[in-house]
Write a protein that binds this DNA or RNA. Structure first.
Length: 111
DNA sequence: TGTGGCGCGTAAT
DNA sequence: ATTACGCGCCACA
């Protein structure tokens, strides 16, 4: 299912982000910067911005995108609270765990 | 650990 | 065309 089929994709840039993100398998996570790198974008904030207006949760795994220092980063526009809690729960269901607000197994991260 | 500046796509002005 | 803002990041102290 091509990304362009998603109604909630607002810009071509977002489509690139989602397409690249879909290649990150369950059980792994990628950095905002690394994800950006894959599509030739040098602004991690732009990546987060594209993920902000979250498309479909399972198809485009925006919960697999974390910060460069291996902290969780944000979810649905927020960096804390219930939203973030859901992100962590999704990750946990894939075997990706955080301890002390830090990725437990750094080998899961794509830098 | 804290602060400041940089990056660039998007929305608002 | 300009300004302002944002699920960040890196350098430097």
């Amino acid at each position: 299912m091509p990304i362009s089929h998603f109604q909630s994709v607002s810009s071509p840039f977002a489509a690139q982000v989602y397409t690249a993100l879909r290649k990150v398998p369950a059980g792994r996570v990628i950095t905002y910067a690394a994800l950006g790198r894959r599509i030739g974008c040098r602004s991690p904030r732009a990546i987060g911005q594209a993920l902000r207006a979250n498309p479909f949760a399972p198809q485009v795994p925006c919960h697999r995108v974390i910060a460069s220092d291996l902290t969780p980063g944000g979810f649905q526009g927020k960096t804390a609270g219930p939203a973030l809690a859901r992100k962590l729960r999704l990750l946990a269901s894939e075997g990706t765990h955080f301890e002390n607000n830090r990725l437990t197994d750094p080998r899961r991260a794509i830098r």
